[in-house]
C-alpha cells in the first residue's frame, strides 16, 4: 500500500494547517521539493495525509520531528573545496584591515560550514576579531552544531577537503588536522576543538519570518544551498534581508549552483563565488 499523495493542492492544505498549529511555515517552499519531502514523511511514518493532519494538530513533539524530516539538513566540511580555497587565498585576506568582522551563517544545519569557515578565519588571523552568528530553523540541528561532534563515517571527506583547502600551497608549512579536530571512540567521532566553537553564537531563527531586527550588519553572510528549497517570492524577500544586513561591499556566499533572482541581480556584483553588495545599479552579474 502506498501512502503517497499525488495532489500538490492537498499538500498545500496540510501546510496551512501546520502553519496554524505550529510556529513552522513551509507555504512558500518550492512545490516539487515540499511535495517530495511530505510524501517521504507519509511513507516513513506510514500515515495518510489525514492522519498526519490529526497528529500535527494534537502532538507538538511529533511536529518537531516532522519538521526535521521536512527540512534538508545535509552539509559537509568544505563542501566544494575549490570555493573555500578561493575564499581563503583570494577574498578573505583583504579583510585583515577591518577592526572587527561580523559573520552570519544563515541555515547552518549541523554546523560543518561554520567550523570550516572558522578554520579559514583562524589561519588568516581573523577569528579573534570575528563575531559569528549561526542560525537555523531547527533546534535539534542547532544542538548538534553546538556540540561539534561528527561521525567520521558520514564525514569521511573531511581530511581530504581540509588538506586541499588549507594545505593547497606546496611552499607553505603544512597545517596539521589535529590543530582543529580530535578523534575519539576508535576514530569514529571527530570532535571540533574549542578554539573553533567558543566564538560562535548559535541561535534559532526562521528565515521565512525574517525577523532579524536584533542583528547587526554583517561583512559576510553564508547561505549555501538553503534558498534552493524556497519559491522565488520567498527567495527575493530573503535576499532583501541579506542586502539590508550587509555592510557596503559585504559578501554574500551562496551554493555553487545558486544565482540571484529578479531585482537583486542589480544589487550585487558577482565576483567568482562571491556576491558583493553594491548600492549602485548595474546591469550585469
Amino acid at each position: 500500500m502506498t501512502y503517497k499523495v499525488d495532489n500538490i493542492a492537498e499538500i498545500k492544505t496540510y501546510l496551512k494547517e501546520l502553519k496554524k498549529y505550529s510556529p513552522y511555515d513551509f507555504c512558500e517552499y518550492s512545490d516539487s521539493s515540499i511535495y517530495r519531502r511530505i510524501n517521504k514523511v507519509l511513507e516513513d511514518h506510514r500515515l495518510s495525509l489525514d492522519e498526519l493532519m490529526d497528529k500535527t494538530r494534537s502532538d507538538s513533539l511529533f511536529v518537531e520531528d516532522i519538521v526535521q524530516e521536512i527540512t534538508v539538513n545535509t552539509t559537509e566540511f568544505f563542501r566544494d573545496p575549490e570555493i573555500w580555497r578561493d575564499l581563503y587565498t583570494g577574498y578573505f585576506p583583504s579583510l585583515k584591515n577591518k577592526k572587527e568582522l561580523n559573520v552570519w551563517h544563515a541555515g547552518c544545519s549541523s554546523g560543518q560550514e561554520v567550523y570550516s569557515n572558522n578554520i579559514l578565519l583562524n589561519e588568516l588571523g581573523l577569528l579573534e576579531k570575528s563575531n559569528i552568528v549561526a542560525t537555523d530553523l531547527n533546534s535539534k540541528m542547532l544542538k548538534a552544531a553546538k556540540k561539534g561532534e561528527y561521525n567520521h563515517r558520514y564525514n569521511h571527506k573531511i581530511i581530504d577537503n581540509f588538506n586541499s583547502v588549507i594545505n593547497g600551497n606546496a611552499f607553505a608549512d603544512k597545517v596539521r588536522f589535529d590543530k582543529y579536530f580530535e578523534f575519539s571512540g576508535d576514530n569514529d567521532i571527530i570532535r571540533v576543538k574549542k578554539i573553533l566553537k567558543s566564538c560562535v553564537d548559535f541561535r534559532r531563527h526562521d528565515l521565512v519570518k525574517g525577523d532579524i531586527s536584533s542583528f547587526q550588519k554583517f561583512d559576510i553572510i553564508f547561505c549555501r544551498n538553503v534558498l534552493i528549497y524556497f519559491n522565488t517570492n520567498l527567495q527575493t524577500r530573503i535576499l532583501k534581508y541579506f542586502h539590508d544586513h550587509l555592510t557596503n561591499g559585504g559578501m554574500l556566499i551562496l551554493g555553487n549552483h545558486e544565482g540571484l533572482t529578479g531585482f537583486f541581480k542589480t544589487k550585487f556584483i558577482k565576483n567568482g563565488p562571491v556576491f558583493i553588495k553594491t548600492n549602485a545599479f548595474h546591469f550585469q552579474y
Binding site: 500538490i8 518550492s30 512545490d31 516539487s32 521539493s33 517530495r36 519531502r37 534538508v72 545535509t74 552539509t75 563542501r79 566544494d80 544551498n225 534552493i228 528549497y229 551554493g255 555553487n256 549552483h257 545558486e258
Partner: peptide, 21 residues
Amino acid sequence: APSNYHLFIEYDNTIHLSTEE
C-alpha cells in the same frame, strides 16, 4: 545535473536542484 546535487524538474518547467540525502 551538476556534481553533488539532485536535479528535479519543477512544475513550472524550471530546474530545481537539491542537496538532500
